[in-house]
Amino acid sequence: MNKRRPYVRPMAGWWRKNPFFVEYMIHEGTALFVAAYALILLTGLVYLSRGEAAWNVWLEGLKNPWYIAFHWLALAAVSYHTYTWFKIMPRTMPPVIVGGKRLPDMAITGGGLAVATTACLALLGLVWGIAR
């Protein structure tokens, strides 16, 4: 056994002391909802491969109030992920030079959010068009 007991600065709750890090932990935390949602879809895919009865069990299961509550939370979390993804984008992508000037952060974030909104509405329209 190691007899030395060096001082280790405690880390618990460090991020709660600074609003910047609280926001950081929330936007990193959206990954838990993305993962859980993907696993729900994967479960659905496996049930689909097992035939109609199995698929209907999965589909009925989604009506469970706990699943509904989860999906409301997931909707909020993933929407927040969309917002932060494009908010950070000016710093995660190489600078864009237009007419000798650097494209402002607002343009990149705003453009990204506009594309995301369009993509979501297009997806809804596509699903509606196919299902109708």
């Binding site: 997931a74 909707l75 993933v78």
Partner: peptide
């Protein structure tokens, strides 16, 4: 992909 389509996918399949 999740930023572009995630919110609508969750809304459609989950709600």
């Amino acid at each position: 992909l999740s930023a572009l389509l995630g919110p609508m996918l969750v809304f459609i399949t989950g709600l």
